[in-house]
Write a protein that binds this DNA or RNA. Structure first.
Lengths: 198, 198
DNA sequence: GGATTAACTGACCGGTCGGTCAAATCATGC
DNA sequence: GCATGATTTGACCGACCGGTCAGTTAATCC
């Protein structure tokens, strides 16, 4: 594995576990077996590294979870239910491996950095929008199929995603992923602008 | 105003705006017009200061918002709607004053510190539970009055609160409090364990 | 083989971190 | 006036921060 990739992998794990401000460049280098000088051969700054981690590995994680949730074989609303299951499973796994429930990688970094680094904030904001659009497309399909009454699917998708972020923060706060399973089903009850009573 | 109080007030504002790891003891002291030595006369550590801020000013903020939401003159579910309104109003105000949407003070610090400081994590977890209990009591009242069908009010309260945390994270991510108003009404649609179709 | 460039090394930079401490100053009660 | 304890001061500590840089090594190309 090349140097740049080793740095990105170490950074991914350390940043997710302990956040940007609490992880030093030296620590990332040590974990990757790389000298500090080499770090700055591949990345212009610590911030540039963090952006690269967001763009590659954190996005990869989202792709992985989404591809296992948004299956054509499932009915639209079942895909959203599967998304909750897969988020739960991922949080449960990291809890098993690290002893800590770490929450959402994107949610963590944006909570920490939104007011301090506009580049990071807007990158996460764009990422969030994309996720919401995927959920919205699923809701549109559900409406078309008549599975749910017509509603404001854009707003409902944003609300559902906000709820999932809230759930992951709850799980991190309690250091217990089970809350995601216990409360996850409610994501399906969220509705904005429903045109008919349910 | 005495020295300890000045330190707490400076810490409250700085910690809320820029988070624990990104604010130094010296900066808090400078803002309060206090020497560093004096700081350690009143607080054993930076962590102790943060805990004191949580216990006093952040709790005070919550009390303030809740007392203006959970009014006996309002029907139970209207109180929850009022809670959303007051959260929105607070985020809008801080955005107006600081140019940034700062999100939930508790959510921010627990997102940053949950994996690094068990004392802080459990304090926030306990605080969250209390908030959920207040919401639950309101839901119980709504069920008793027949305003909503019976449901698992404990789980529903936790889910509603998670949603509110998610909304505040969204507002911070977009640096725009309006999302709280746009999506806030959906909190009333969240339901877990409803015994009858709505 | 010689030149060029990429990759890497490790010491070093100024500055900041949380925290300490002995001494000075202040307020209080007797 | 004097003693006592609370409060304040500001210099100081070692560790660490993100980042730099001159120089070495390794790979590539003509």
């Amino acid at each position: 594995m090349n140097t740049r990739e080793r740095l990105l992998l170490s950074a991914r794990d350390l940043l997710y576990a302990r956040n940007y401000g609490h992880v030093g460049v030296k620590e990332i280098c040590d974990a990757a077996g790389v000298q500090k000088g080499s770090f700055y051969h591949y990345f212009a700054s610590k911030q540039a590294l963090a952006l690269a981690v967001l763009d590659t590995y954190f996005v990869e994680l989202k792709e992985d979870i989404f591809s296992r949730s948004f299956l054509p074989s499932l009915a639209p609303m079942q895909r959203i239910a599967a998304l909750v299951d897969n988020i739960y499973e991922f949080q449960r796994l990291t809890r098993e491996q690290t002893g800590k429930t770490l929450g959402c990688p994107y949610g963590n970094i944006v909570s920490e950095m939104a007011t301090l680094d506009e580049t990071i904030r807007s990158k996460v904001a764009t990422f969030f929008r994309k996720v919401e659009q995927e959920i919205q497309a699923t809701l549109d399909e559900a409406v078309t199929l008549g599975d749910i009454p017509a509603c404001n699917t854009e707003a409902t998708a944003a609300a559902m995603f906000s709820y999932l972020e809230g759930l992951m923060l709850q799980a991190k706060t309690r250091n217990d992923p089970e809350v995601i399973q216990a409360l996850g089903s409610a994501v399906l009850t969220i509705r904005i602008g429903a045109q008919y009573p349910q």
